[in-house]
């Protein structure tokens, strides 16, 4: 069950964001980091794959094109975590996850649903939050509940839009370890839009660096990350060094002069 992204184009009205994005095949068990500057199209790609934006091109998962598949099929296969945090509401965290599971899997038996929910709260280490109202949780805690809503469904393709943006260091690591564990166990694929390059380099098997509507670089972190790429994709002067554990480590030295086409 591999994922093929072939000449994907997405536009907001007349403004194209992705123009012919193509990537090498992504295989089961892979964590794929989506990198790129603000506005490079990371979230747009994830939303298009989740069926929330019209797109052309092909996104083939397990022989089916996600862009033409039925909503029900896509829902079974794909789990999408939006960039926004789940709203602070009087719902219990447990109920938020239960509702997400029930909305997508109405056929599930009660006992199975309960076991799945308990399992995900346990695995993510947030069982203490389960019976608290969402309105009483911090932003980071709500982000963890949002992640639980996606992981509990055990989708084959995980689309996570900045899943660690509201988390402290410990929880950032916990999240990525959990996602890596689930992807490995289920033979799934995770596409993770993320701003922390070093975190991506530490956990992801493959990086897709987006810019100018397409893939600027792709491959294992050690190959994809180069000073030239940093300059090209982010407009910074930086270095890529190897840390003591062998992972590439990006050190940003200074912002390069921003060209007109890269301004926010």
């Amino acid at each position: 069950m591999s994922l093929y992204l072939d000449r994907i184009g997405v536009a907001y009205g007349r403004r194209p964001v992705l123009t012919g994005l193509t990537a090498a095949a992504l295989h089961p068990g892979m964590l794929v980091g989506l990198l790129g500057a603000n506005g490079a199209g990371k979230s747009t790609l994830l939303r298009a794959l989740a069926g929330l934006l019209p797109a052309h091109g092909r996104a083939i998962l397990d022989g089916t094109d996600l862009f033409t598949a039925s909503g029900a099929h896509r829902l079974r296969q794909v789990g999408y975590l939006p960039q926004t945090l789940p709203q602070a509401s009087p719902l219990l965290a447990y109920e938020s996850v239960l509702a997400a599971l029930r909305a997508t899997r109405p056929d599930l038996r009660d006992a199975t649903a309960q076991a799945a929910i308990q399992g995900i709260f346990d695995r993510l280490g947030i069982a203490e939050l389960a019976l608290r109202r969402m309105g009483q949780l911090s932003g980071g805690q709500r982000q963890m509940v949002g992640l639980a809503q996606v992981l509990v469904r055990q989708p084959r393709l995980l689309l996570l839009d900045e899943p660690t943006s509201a988390l402290d260091l410990r929880w950032q690591l916990a999240v990525l370890e959990n996602v890596a564990g689930q992807v490995h166990r289920d033979g799934a694929i995770a596409l993770i839009a993320i701003h922390d390059i070093n975190l991506a380099a530490r956990f992801c098997h493959r990086l897709l660096v987006l810019g100018q509507g397409a893939v600027l670089a792709q491959g294992p972190p050690a190959q994809a990350l180069t000073p030239d790429l940093l300059n090209h994709a982010y407009g910074i002067d930086g270095r890529v060094e190897a840390c003591s554990q062998g992972f590439p480590l990006v050190l940003a030295d200074r912002a390069a002069t921003i060209s007109a086409d890269r301004r926010l």
Partner: peptide, 19 residues
């Protein structure tokens, strides 16, 4: 009830669950 409960988490999240 499930669709509406999901909606309390925010529209983005509800949409991501196929609502």
């Amino acid at each position: 009830v499930w669709a509406m409960t999901t909606l309390r988490g925010g529209e983005d999240h509800a949409r991501s669950f196929g609502i």
